[in-house]
């Protein structure tokens, strides 16, 4: 059935209102304060560490984001762990909250398509996340320049920006997940818990589950050494279902120019390689391109799922 009018009418209005709501909400302020404190803490620790050890490292700036000093983890792993929380806080009551406030039927009675509501909510969330991430990134870079007294090189900035873009996509996955739960589940508290459970499973328990599952799927045969490899590959394939693992691999590759591979490497493949020599930025991106596509696909899939459910949902809930 062909319908007149653009499904995008009103998207901008809804996105901007959504973003303004997030920017002024106490929920967002609290969680960004948490992120900011942990980020500042980890970068501060990293700066201390860099000063002590590797004053001659060629990629000093990226080290800011990846160096960990006990007991603090690195900035990159902190983000991988905390950003889903930010995204969930933004999205968990996106749709069911509107029903709860009884505003949904009134909004849908305005001359816009339903498509605009969900898409506007997603875009509004992404806008807020993009602003927050950019601010965070600039703050950390600024802190680095001040404390280390070194300007970042062009390659540093390039890799940093690529990392920023991927981080946004990674956060988008969790925003889409939270919105999907808020569409399927009627009560905000339940949808928040559901999204948080998925976050816990993927960021903490997944690394415990995968070795076990892999040993069941492809068991070791003591007489055949290749089974060792196939078990490892199974485990890695399973681990990559988790967006946190994908994001971890991407940030490792982007922020450490010396790394060459995210999978097992054979001795024969290392022949002729200059170990420790940095890769060009584009080559690094090329290696983790499948991971980036995977994250993007996950975001699109989750959003589409939410979209399909939302389009078929009855207005009177």
């Amino acid at each position: 059935m062909k319908r007149e009018g653009s499904p995008l009418k009103g998207v901008g209005t809804i996105a901007i209102k959504e973003a303004a709501d997030h920017m002024t909400s106490a929920r967002m302020h609290l969680i960004m304060l948490l992120v900011l404190l942990t980020a500042a803490g980890s970068v501060w620790a990293a700066i201390g560490q860099i000063r002590v050890t590797t004053a001659e490292d060629p990629f000093l700036f990226l080290k800011l984001l990846t160096t960990a000093r006990d007991p603090l983890p690195s900035f990159a792993s902190f983000l991988g762990f905390l950003l889903p929380l930010v995204a969930i806080a933004l999205g968990f009551d996106g749709i069911n909250g509107e029903f709860g406030k009884r505003t949904m039927s009134r909004i849908l009675a305005q001359p816009i398509y339903r498509d605009a509501v969900l898409f506007g909510k997603f875009l509004g969330g992404m806008l807020v996340l993009a602003i927050a991430l950019l601010t965070l990134w600039l703050l950390m870079v600024g802190l680095g320049i001040l404390m280390l007294g070194l300007p970042p090189s062009g390659a540093d900035v390039g890799r940093g920006l690529a990392y920023l873009a991927v981080t946004l996509v990674y956060t988008g996955v969790w925003l889409a997940l939270a919105l999907a739960f808020s569409t399927v589940i009627k009560t905000p508290a339940t949808s928040a818990l559901a999204a948080l459970s998925v976050w816990l499973v993927f960021s903490i328990f997944w690394s415990m589950i995968t070795p076990f599952a892999a040993s069941v799927i492809s068991p070791l045969d003591p007489t055949n050494p290749m089974t060792l490899l196939s078990q490892y590959e199974t485990q890695q394939a399973l681990a990559r279902i988790s967006p946190s693992v994908l994001y971890g691999e991407i940030s490792q590759m982007l922020l450490d120019p010396a790394s060459r591979s995210v999978g097992p490497v054979f001795m024969s493949q290392l022949q002729g390689a200059l170990v420790g020599a940095p890769l060009p930025t584009l080559q690094s991106i090329l290696i983790i391109w499948p991971q980036i596509s995977g994250l993007f696909a996950a975001m699109v899939l989750l959003f589409t799922g939410a979209y399909v459910v939302f389009q078929r949902q009855e207005v009177r809930a």
Binding site: K2, R3, E4, G5, K9, Q110, P111, I112, Y113
Partner: peptide
């Protein structure tokens, strides 16, 4: 159903 925007306005 066919011209929802005009009807809703």
């Amino acid at each position: 159903l066919r011209e929802p925007l005009k009807v809703k306005s």
